[in-house]
Simulated scan of single mutants.
Amino acid sequence: MYTEMFKSFSEQTEKTLAPYVKFNKVFTKNVEELTELQLAAVRAYSDLGLSQLKAVSEVKDVQSFAAFNSQQLETLTKLSQQLIDDSNKFASIAQSFKTEVDELVAENVKQVNPA
């Protein structure tokens, strides 16, 4: 008697908590992807900044200063492209998360309101 009652309670609890578990998995995946993106961005921007510091430390005369200045446009272009790429990746992750949550909500609405 108690075995059936606990089994029934357990099944109902699993059924009730299933949407939360699915959402938590989607959310965790999203946070993981965002964290990886941020770590990669920090690495890229740090590398760029360090390379600029090294380059400016090599300036010793007018010729090296001119060479450094000519590289600045290339560096700014690289930085701009990195920012655009990071923004696109962020938008992609956000869109993926939205799509997965929308699918999860639609699935749960169908279970609650069968057609």
Rank of each mutant, 00 (worst) to 15 (best):
T3G: 03
T3N: 12
E4W: 03
E4D: 12
F6I: 13
F6A: 05
K7T: 11
F9W: 02
E14D: 11
E14I: 08
T16S: 10
L17M: 07
V21P: 00
K25S: 12
T28L: 05
K29G: 11
E33A: 07
L34E: 07
T35K: 04
E36P: 00
L37K: 01
Q38K: 14
A41L: 10
A41H: 04
V42S: 06
R43W: 09
R43L: 15
A44P: 06
Y45F: 15
D47W: 03
S51V: 05
V56Y: 06
S57Q: 15
S57G: 13
V59C: 08
K60S: 13
V62T: 06
S64A: 02
S64L: 01
F65V: 03
A66G: 02
N69W: 08
Q71H: 13
Q72W: 01
T77H: 12
T77S: 10
Q81D: 12
L83V: 09
L83S: 07
I84H: 07
D85E: 14
D85P: 05
D86N: 13
S92I: 00
A94M: 06
Q95T: 05
F97G: 04
K98H: 12
E100T: 09
E100M: 03
D102K: 07
E103L: 06
V105A: 13
V105W: 05
V105F: 11
V105G: 09
V109Y: 08
K110E: 13
P114T: 04
A115V: 14
